[in-house]
Design a binder for these strands. Structure first.
Lengths: 191, 191
DNA sequence: TTCATTTCTTGCCATAAGGCAAGGTGGGCA
DNA sequence: TGCCCACCTTGCCTTATGGCAAGAAATGAA
């Protein structure tokens, strides 16, 4: 049984036998660097638990500008919640910034587990709650923190992203231009 | 049966008998202007469907500055998802900007319904998905749109907020100072 | 190895938004 | 009626970040 999945589905209420059933619903897949897990316009039919590598999620704004909405690393879940659960075409795209090893679960299998294992539904709700919280935090940080502070926070919390993602994608994630990020990085390294 | 609740719980899969059971789990409450639905530090034990009036949610940042994270109006749900579902102390506070009439549902009653009515769990997941989507959209808009544009969007989508909330709270919601919002408002009215 | 492409840095100047402080306005309450 | 206080506006100057463009550095493919 994958330790990645055990980590992802760790929850006080989920019993070992349930955990086994959940993990067995996943299959191992590998995405070469650059490949898409999901493209905008498609309807998601699965999500992935990431074992290794880095995934980037992004949207195109009304000008066609590519805005990074998040990074997904090992032990985390790559999912387009809206497309998967509301059965609509994705607005977001997800692609592999490096080679990615992941565990895929089908929407149908997920549905079966969600409605047959009460603790799994609890886990799902807790996961969604946490995601919502992180997005709120991010919005607040966009308001209260300077770009430099947001960069330092990212460096502290997810140093691997700075090493694996190109600067322009980190910049749009932080809400600034690549030019500004380059300068910020210089200032920070001087200190 | 409250039309407000019928509107909130509208979902293609929920059957009329289920809808009745869900609505009956709520009780009507009234908050005078200024009163708190939830204060940071408390653990949420319920959420509210808003029938009339306007609720503001906010957090205090590390400097103690009050940042508006959202407004909740009629036909919407006032809830601190993290506090309620993870059973932890709230970081967010929610208070009534006007007199508010709402329908309250207890966490325990909610849990019973969530685990006994499959379509209610589906509804909950869809609701969470939508919230997540809206928060992502908000983050993207903070990055790609000017403050003026965000103000115009708010005016178009939620004009009632501009009429009922004081300027300083709208300003922190838009991610700017009240000074800037005052100037933006002047420029906009000139056109 | 070479070449092309992408990625990153830097300089110059423009602009949106903030900080501060003074003053105006209006609603609620004694 | 008059006063107080929260709310809003405005002026002056500062500052963070953006836009553009040139060029340097790194990467990857043939």
């Amino acid at each position: 049984m994958s330790t990645t999945l055990q980590q992802i589905y760790a929850h006080p209420d989920i019993k070992p036998s349930e955990l086994v059933a959940i993990c067995e619903a996943h299959e191992r897949v590998v995405f070469p660097k650059g490949e898409y897990l999901l493209q905008d316009g498609q309807t998601a039919n699965a999500y992935w638990g990431i074992e290794s590598g880095l995934v980037r999620t992004y949207v195109l704004d009304y000008n066609g500008q590519d805005i990074t909405t998040g990074f997904v690393g090992s032990g985390e879940i790559a999912i387009d919640v809206v497309s998967l659960f509301k059965r609509v075409k994705a607005v977001e795209s997800m692609h592999a910034l490096t080679e990615v090893v992941a565990w895929r679960i089908d929407f149908r299998r997920f549905q079966e587990l969600f409605h047959s294992i009460a603790t799994f539904a609890e886990w799902g709700r807790a996961w969604m709650s946490q995601s919502l919280f992180e997005f709120k935090q991010r919005s607040v940080s966009m308001i209260t923190d300077s770009a430099t502070q947001r960069y330092l926070d990212l460096q502290r919390q997810h140093p691997e992203i700075l090493l694996q993602a190109p600067l322009k994608h980190i910049a749009t994630y932080l809400g600034i231009t690549d030019t500004s990020l380059s300068r910020i990085r210089k200032d920070v390294s001087k200190t």
